[in-house]
Amino acid sequence: MYAFTFHRPQTLRQAVGLLAKNEEAKLLAGGHTLLPTMKLRLAGPPQLVDLSLVDGLSGIELRGRSLSIGAMTRHNDVNTSPVVHEAIPALAKLAGLIGDPAVRHMGTIGGSIANNDPNADYPAACLGLGATIITNKRRIKADDFFTGMFSTALEPAEIITKVSFPIPKKAAYQKFKNQASRFALVGVFVSKRGSDIRLAVTGAGANGVFRVPSFEEALKTRFSPKSLEGMSIPADGMNSDIHGSAEYRAHLVGVLARRAVAEAIGK
């Protein structure tokens, strides 16, 4: 690691102040992407701002028809929360598919979506449920938040405080794991809330998480895997690497979308 100064603010205001003063400073949430990246010297922020002592950043709360999850809430806590299990079981399941038990004790939802790794699970849930990302400055719709691989709409000195998920009638997440890393080679999150149907894909796109309007349209007629029979998406714009070709990933999107819809309707 390159040397850095470690800061541990106690309030959001102090954290924002530290970011504003130090342009190259990085926020430390669970650290399970940032620290390995720093160990490889792929990142070398001169300052780290640890958020773990900042009050009010973790916790899970049901507010009317939305589920609100604090940015510093650990994956394990989302996975095991009775509130999440009751409101959005697909989200609890997704959190339990991230990393391994020790990683889930540290990793956070805010860290995951701020990083926007193209193979991460949470971005699919945010986009697939139509979540709102709440920061110290504003509310950002998931549709506007994820702007490309490892890139988001967050501005300098902007900190995610919570994520608010509208509660769907039906939802499911299907993940096809890379056999070695267990990251999503392709993951599909589908949800239905009234006539609003959303289907988001992680792992496959060269530009990060994305929605599939043609699938969503087909599911509007009938929310059943049959509506997606024979459908696939073009291989253009899909990732292609040693783990799978663009064609393979495009094919998996169709397969996993059908499985996700089947799971969502309990079949």
Partner: peptide, 19 residues
């Protein structure tokens, strides 16, 4: 490198002492 921090298993190679 797994140890328990505040009762939970974590990987001690991926956490700073100052945390």
């Amino acid at each position: 490198c797994v140890v328990h921090v505040n009762g939970r298993a974590v990987k001690s190679c991926t956490i700073l002492a100052l945390q």
